[in-house]
Write a protein that binds this DNA or RNA. Structure first.
Length: 946
RNA sequence: GCGAGUAUGGCGAAAUUGGCAGACGCGCCAGACUUAGAAUCUGGUACCAACCGGUGUGUAGGUUCAAGUCCUAUUACUCGCACCA
């Protein structure tokens, strides 16, 4: 039996003998494994933490046994709002709250038996630590990467703090889920956008899971486009817009500008409805981010009276509108609107009755009859006709007799004819109907490309689409030829959409009966003067050249990621080491005066208007300017929660160094982190921030690697027994302490890893825990069947070596569930023997040790084996022991397993086939049948086709 | 809306990447040991027919000697981003 009393015994031994301390021995091969250090909340550790830590715990213990010098550190990310909120509520100082929580966390972590190096513990709230957080800030400031800006920022009214973009995803506060409002404020910003390209491009060289890479890519959100200056009528001023579609510039029918855009103020004197615009601006600012992006799909806006823009390419006069669907923070805060080819512009144009001008025509290639390479191209003009019944809601579909074509009436435009005339003529010729009530264009043109076999040419037909409505059923006789070719049938709208089997015909019909829509796909330029006939790619290149030559626009790359709002109006954070001097401006503190510590205060409440509590402490705020020595004031905002965690993995390398953040040779030895495991929720927050800081430190020569983490993996969530996310309100939270108390630490560890695929979420099951306990009991009971006698067998050898191989490989791939399953299978095999020699048990204990260290240490000791198990060498496997003399193969008749054969393993496919052919059992399946083919896949199956 | 992922017994899940579907665990059934229970051990356990056999990896097609795995369409759920110009 596995008695949980042994847990404490081994934990004490590990602690006393400092078994898992990393040593700075630069001659040994190193392995730096990292977990996300916890935030010491009052709630304690939960089973999710345990899962997150266990992944790297197994890797770390295995790597040690494989001879690596392993650094597996732990610390506490202790600045943050919950602690401060708790302090505000209870009046207990955050320092005290933090210390108490850290104590609880430490106790818990130790009870998990995790093999951390407890000698390197860090706490981000100690002055010894945040001295270097402040030092990095000074470096950022020195290199122009930290700046103060008066700008619109995300503000959480409930937490009363400014939030970074990363902390307000979806328009909600990361902490409290309140809706974020936009607030204009002067705050510290970090220029993370300067590093957007580096962060994006370097991803290619990193071993991060695909999902992590993808999320970072889309978060950074690079797009290539052009900034174009549009003129303002009767003014020298320009309206700069950003667009990724300069090819559509001939389709611009209006200009739109963000409500907060400065140009509006600059043109104030000329705008005759400025009051209306101010009113609109006010309304827009009151909307939360959430309303502006999610709920308010309905477009709103105000036309700017008295101001017109000039399209620099066409010199067309364009009206200007203020609309809050244009964001100040992206691009230039103004756009050229092309309703024909942009969904948002289209919606707006429809609502406000603005012209829609098509400049991209869909280029449809007939897939059943595509253009042939080498054949000459011939252009033409044609029409597609939607013909409507005179008194029913029905339309004509042409069904071809010799082909599988069901489509609209089509025809070529004759010289001198308009498309409308062609449509009427084709209707008459193909259907005989002559009494037309209405003829009009469907607002959609497109190209049809196909190979015209009878003429040996590739045709590219520019199609106009026409709607024809009949007044009556008056009909003339049509030619015999036409009658032979097609049947024209009347169908309802729904039947038409089901029947038409050519994609472009269906689209034209759909637009005709269900209304227009913006076309955003590929195509060929029309109505665009010198761009006509080009495809989008070619047109983009040509217009960009034109814009550059005429100094109208410049290429510009934009990012979805914004600069990092780096300030919290709170007490419990790192003070920003900057002094505001009336004469010198923003002055950095001298490095030797760091750390700048927090003053003792009684009142932690932030001010009503988002002011830091530090602002109320005059004795702290008032100081002298480090540059000129006159009276000055300190910056009162503190750094955000993410500051300390952006570089903590560096401090682990040299946690007690008081001269620098970590010594150069130690950094050189330990960096990069070889493997970092953590949560998906940090991918666009902590992970991106710390990559940014690290890259900056690399650029200024502080760290020796471009990237902090060589490999990044993520663990899945543990859900409650009910399959829901664990939460206090749902009452489905599992406390790891309870599990340890009842079943022992190793049971918790084993179950957590056995629960399912490591990166996937999985629900908790009490019965599953019992299963893990049973397995560990069976491990302990192995001592009952141990013997000194020789129990060697080829089968045992084979199974043991295969087990060692599978478990070793599975650990490396974080497939802990199948590794444990394999050990379970192996132990089942051991129990099938009456007695078993210890040599078959030792390797099992060794490979199980990373998962269940207490149990394996205990049994190792009981068996009086050498040393502690964790200091033994990882067992080797021998491929040659894994081969078997005979192999069993399944015989399939037409894909169904019918019987099995056992053959010697040295036989080749042909010899195996001979044996199977002679097998008596085959006969019953081949009566009245012939064996057509036999496929032998050695070691797997033999498939006989009859 | 865009992007990504998942879907397999009563349950958690495996499947060497195209080669015997359901390893391992839970649960359940039967048996052994027990006065009895607990624990432990042994055997069974996808479904239908219960004899030959047939059907099964969300749904519908396709490729192949062979498909959970590849292709096409489709549904449901999860996650990420979201008026990104």
């Amino acid at each position: 039996m596995y008695d949980k009393k042994i847990d404490k015994k081994w934990q004490d031994i590990w602690e006393k003998e400092k078994c898992f301390q990393a040593v700075d021995d630069f001659n040994r091969k190193k392995f730096y494994s990292l977990i996300e250090f916890p935030y010491p909340s009052g709630a304690g550790l939960h089973v999710g933490h345990a899962r997150a830590f266990m992944g790297m715990e197994v890797i770390s213990r295995m790597k040690r046994m494989k001879g690596y010098n392993v650094l597996f550190p732990i610390g506490f990310d202790s600045f943050g709002l919950p602690t401060e909120n708790y302090a505000m509520k209870t009046g207990i100082h955050p320092r005290k709250v933090t210390d108490d929580n850290i104590e609880t966390f430490t106790k818990q972590l130790k009870s998990f038996g995790l093999s951390f190096d407890w000698n390197r513990v860090i706490d981000t709230t100690t002055p010894e630590y945040f001295k270097w957080t402040q030092w990095i800030f000074l470096k950022l400031f020195e290199h122009g990467m930290a700046y103060k800006d008066n700008t619109y920022v995300n503000y959480c009214p409930k937490c009363r703090v400014i939030l970074a973009n990363e902390e307000s995803q979806g328009g909600l506060c990361d902490r409290c889920d309140s809706q974020i409002v936009q607030k204009e404020k002067e705050v510290w910003m970090l220029k993370i956008t300067d590093y957007a390209d580096k962060l994006l491009d370097e991803l290619a060289n990193l071993d991060f899971t695909p999902r992590v890479k993808l999320e970072q890519e889309s978060w950074i959100g690079r797009s290539y486009g052009v900034e174009i200056d549009f003129g303002i009528e009767n003014s020298d001023k320009k309206l700069k817009v950003y667009t990724t579609r300069p090819d559509t510039i001939f389709g611009v029918t209006f200009m739109a500008i963000a409500p907060e855009h400065k140009l509006l103020d600059e043109l104030k004197g000329r705008i005759t409805n400025f009051d209306e615009i101010i009113e609109y601006r006010k309304k827009a600012s009151e909307k939360t981010e959430f309303e502006r992006t999610k709920i308010a799909k309905d477009k709103t806006g105000v036309k700017v009276q008295g101001v017109y823009c000039i399209n620099p390419v066409t010199n067309e006069k364009l009206s200007l509108v203020v609309a809050d669907y244009v964001m100040l923070g992206y691009g230039t805060g103004a756009i050229m609107a092309v309703p024909a080819h942009d969904e948002r512009d289209y919606e707006f144009a429809k609502k406000f009755n603005i012209d829609i001008k098509q400049v991209i025509a869909m280029d449809y290639t007939d897939v059943t009859n595509p253009p042939k390479e080498g054949a000459p191209n011939k252009e033409g003009n044609g029409v597609l006709v939607v013909l409507k019944h005179w008194n029913e809601e029905k339309y004509v579909c042409s069904i071809w007799k010799d082909y599988d074509w069901k489509n609209l009436i089509t025809g070529g435009i004759e010289p001198g004819e308009t498309a409308l005339e062609t449509a009427v003529r084709e209707v008459k010729e193909e259907t005989g109907y002559i009494d037309v009530k209405n003829v009009s264009y469907i607002p959609f043109e497109h190209f049809d490309s196909f190979y015209a076999a009878h003429k040996g040419v590739n045709k590219v037909v520019h199609q106009r689409d026409v709607f024809v409505e009949l007044a009556s059923g008056k009909q003339i006789e049509i030619s015999e030829e036409e009658k032979k070719l097609v049947d024209n049938v009347w169908l309802t709208k729904e039947e038409m959409l089901e029947t038409i089997n050519k994609v472009h015909h269906k689209l034209v019909f759909d637009i005709c009966v269900n209304g227009g829509r913006p076309y955003t796909g590929n195509g060929i330029l029309i109505n665009s003067e010198f761009l006509n006939g080009l495809n989008i790619k070619e047109a983009t290149i040509k217009i960009n050249e034109y814009l550059a030559e005429n100094k109208l626009g410049t290429l510009k790359t934009n990012y979805h990621m914004k600069d990092w709002a780096f300030a919290r109006q709170r007490y419990w954070g790192e003070p920003v080491p900057i002094v505001k001097c009336e004469k010198c401006g923003l002055v950095p503190m001298n490095e030797e005066d760091l750390p700048l510590t927090l003053p003792e205060v009684k009142d932690f409440m932030p001010g009503e208007d988002g002011e830091s509590p530090l602002a109320k402490i005059d004795s702290w705020v008032n100081t002298i300017c480090p540059k000129c020595g006159i009276a000055a004031k300190r910056e009162t905002d503190t750094m955000p929660q993410w500051a300390g965690s952006s570089w903590y993995y560096l401090r682990y390398i040299d946690p007690k160094n008081s001269n620098c953040l970590a010594s150069e040779d130690k950094l050189k030895y330990w960096l990069p982190v070889d493997w970092y495991n953590g949560g998906m929720e940090h991918v666009t927050r902590h992970l991106i921030y710390s990559r940014f800081w690290h890259r900056f430190l690399y650029d200024i020569g502080v760290v020796p690697t471009k990237e902090p983490y060589a490999k990044r993996t993520t663990q899945g969530l543990i859900l409650g027994p009910d399959g829901n996310k664990m939460s206090k309100s749902k009452g489905n939270v599992i406390n790891p302490d309870d599990i340890i108390k009842q079943y022992g630490t190793d049971t918790l560890r084993t179950y957590i890893l056995f629960i399912g695929e490591y990166s996937q979420s999985a629900p908790w099951s009490e019965n599953g825990v019992k299963g893990a306990k049973k397995f560990l009991d069976r491990i302990m009971r192995l001592k009952d069947i141990i013997t000194n006698e020789n129990t060697d067998s080829k089968e045992l050898d084979r199974e043991m070596h295969m087990m060692i191989k599978k478990v070793s490989n599975d650990y490396e791939e974080m497939k802990y569930n199948t590794a444990i399953a394999c050990m379970m299978s192996y132990i089942n095999l051991l129990y099938k023997q009456d007695k078993i020699n210890i040599k078959y048990i030792k390797p099992l204990l060794q490979v199980l040790n990373p998962v269940a260290p207490h149990v394996t240490e205990e049994l190792w000791e009981l068996l009086e084996l050498e040393n502690n198990i964790f200091s033994t060498l990882w067992p080797e496997y021998n491929e040659s022991k894994m081969v078997s003399d005979i192999i069993e193969m399944a015989v399939l008749i037409n894909g169904t397993v019918r019987f099995r054969v056992t053959v010697d393993s040295y036989l080749n496919e042909i010899e195996i086939e001979k044996i199977v052919r002679k097998d008596d059992r085959l006969k019953q399946y081949t009566i009245d049948k012939q064996v057509k083919k036999i496929i032998v896949v050695k070691g797997r199956v033999i498939n006989i086709v009859v």
